[in-house]
């Protein structure tokens, strides 16, 4: 029951955060020079003051700011994020079309980076001054300093242009017909390079922390006990040490969701991956404010959901968190 209570608390807090994002969105629209009506007027090739005032009244822009804010939040709660004048479609429709691609990229990159980062960290910790440890350090430096879009372009040149192993752009091969399985395979094939690119930043981060965390745990008393009672070294590392070294790594990964989405924007641009990042860029260049703000809202939602999921995973792997209620 304690778990349920915490969950409800967390979700309540998440809703508050989302409303705060809406307030921020609203503030930015109001601070920015020009409004929707200016855009519409520009589209129509100019309009006189009377007509513009009429349109403003239609959109409720003549109301007091606080009333406007209230109705904005009210509309978003009904899944109405406004209308895109550039695409001529409701913003929610546009976003739901692009969201799956971004989710796939973000979560696969996170999982890939976590698995590889943890493995590298565990093996590097076996020999703190060995070659693998130095590799982890080097990798961490590279992962921090290399601009992710550049890494993506380098991988693109190497593994799609010079050695044509992977497709250059897009998310699936439209010529492929058939059921779910061949389609999924095509998507997976397209996903490899973007996932590697996006994951590369975070492998560095996770492997370094996992190595440090493992080294600390391996020096503790219960690991010595486990060794002393004659367990196989592999069991000591995997069953006793790793279990206790993992929670900090998972916590760090949870904090990275917003960074992963930021990276995804650049990776999507490099690989023409049809996700939210690409939509954000085109709508920014088209000055399509409702779509841009809708994307900001949804990306915050993804971060919040990611954080909630991290919490759940932490509860599964760390009984101490569970005990705290």
């Amino acid at each position: 029951m304690a778990f349920l209570k915490v969950l409800v608390q967390r979700i309540g807090y998440a809703v508050l955060l989302l409303i705060a994002v809406l307030v921020l969105n609203f503030t930015m629209i109001n601070l920015a020079p020009g409004d929707v009506v200016d855009t519409i007027a520009a589209d129509m090739g100019g309009a006189n003051a009377e007509l513009m005032a009429q349109i403003r009244a239609e959109y409720g822009l003549d109301q007091p700011v606080i009333v406007q804010l209230g109705s904005y939040i009210g509309r978003v709660l009904q899944f109405d994020l406004g209308y895109s004048y550039f695409y001529n479609r409701p913003v929610t429709e546009l976003i739901f079309e692009r969201l799956p691609a971004t989710l796939l990229l973000v979560f696969s990159a996170q999982i890939f980076a976590l698995v590889l980062g943890i493995l590298l960290g565990v093996f590097a910790a076996q020999n703190p001054n060995g070659p693998l440890s130095h590799l982890v350090t080097l990798f961490a430096l590279f992962g921090y300093a290399a601009p992710v879009f550049w890494t993506g372009i380098l991988l693109l040149i190497a593994f799609s242009l010079k050695i044509p192993l992977f497709p250059v752009a897009g998310m699936r091969d439209v010529t492929i017909e058939g059921g779910f399985f061949p389609q999924a395979l095509s998507v997976a094939h397209h996903l490899v390079l973007p996932m590697l690119t996006l994951g590369s930043i975070f492998i560095a981060l996770y492997s370094r922390l996992c190595r440090a965390s493992m080294l600390e745990v391996l020096g503790s008393d219960y690991v010595r006990t486990a060794k002393a009672k004659g367990l196989r070294p592999r069991d000591v590392v995997m069953k006793h040490a790793l279990k206790n070294a993992l929670p900090p790594v998972v916590t760090l990964a949870g904090l990275q969701f917003s960074a992963v989405i930021s990276g995804a924007v650049l990776v999507e641009t490099v690989f023409s991956w049809p996700g939210l990042g690409q939509l954000a860029l085109t709508s920014i260049l088209a000055r399509d404010t409702p779509t841009i703000l809708g994307i900001l809202f949804f990306s915050a939602l993804v971060v919040i959901v990611g954080n909630l999921l991290t919490d759940l995973v932490l509860r599964m792997i760390d009984p101490r968190v569970r005990g705290r209620g």
């Binding site: 994002v21 601070l31 904090l255 989405i261 990276g263 924007v265 860029l281 920014i284 841009i292 900001l296």
Partner: peptide, 16 residues
Amino acid sequence: QVLPTLLFSMVIVALF
């Protein structure tokens, strides 16, 4: 920290 940094700054730059 909930707002993806790059997207947020893109929005700021786009609006202002």
